[in-house]
Simulated assay, not measured.
Amino acid sequence: MTYIITEPCIATKDASCVDVCPVDCIYEGEDQFYIHPEECIDCGACVPECPVEAIFPDDEVPEQYDAFTEKNYTHFDVPFPG
């Protein structure tokens, strides 16, 4: 499992999640932050730090943000498991 950063990040792009990640697996993209699915250790430290509640476990992403799961994997050229 990994965590996915969704649409609310685009408008805010707050780096609080980056600061708390113990394995530095959150990277800044052009429009938002992304969590590397092969580096994430599933600790969840980033979730409570997000001021716009944009981060979800990949199996709990709300339906309206489904496209962000694939977008996250594509950003890192990692095969999308879905």
Results as ranks from 00 to 15, higher is better:
Cys46Val: 08
Cys46Gly: 02
Gly44Asp: 02
Val78Ser: 02
Ile10Phe: 07
Glu70His: 07
Phe56Gln: 06
Pro51Leu: 06
Tyr73Gln: 11
Cys25Val: 08
Glu70Ala: 15
Cys17Asn: 12
Thr2Asn: 03
Phe76Lys: 07
Val61Phe: 08
Tyr65Thr: 03
Ile4Asp: 02
Ile41His: 03
Asp58Lys: 10
Phe76Ala: 08
Val18Met: 08
Ile5His: 03
Pro8Thr: 02
Asp66Gln: 09
Tyr34Ser: 00
Ala45Thr: 01
Phe33Tyr: 15
Ile26Ser: 08
Ile4Ala: 04
Lys71Phe: 13
Asp42Val: 11
Ala15Pro: 15
Cys40Met: 03
Glu28His: 08
Ala67Leu: 07
Asp77Arg: 10
Thr69His: 04
Ile10Glu: 14
Ile26Pro: 02
Lys13His: 13
Pro51Asp: 06
Glu49Leu: 07
Pro57Glu: 12
Pro79Gln: 04
Asp58Ala: 09
Glu70Met: 13
Glu49Arg: 08
Pro79His: 12
Thr2Ser: 14
Thr12Asp: 15
Ile26Cys: 10
Gly29Gln: 11
Glu49Ile: 01
Ala15Lys: 14
Cys50Asp: 11
Phe33Ser: 02
Glu60Met: 08
Glu63Arg: 00
Cys21Arg: 07
Val20Pro: 11
Glu7Leu: 12
Asp19Leu: 13
Ala54Trp: 10
Val18Ser: 05
Cys46Pro: 01
Val52Pro: 12
Pro62His: 00
Glu28Pro: 15
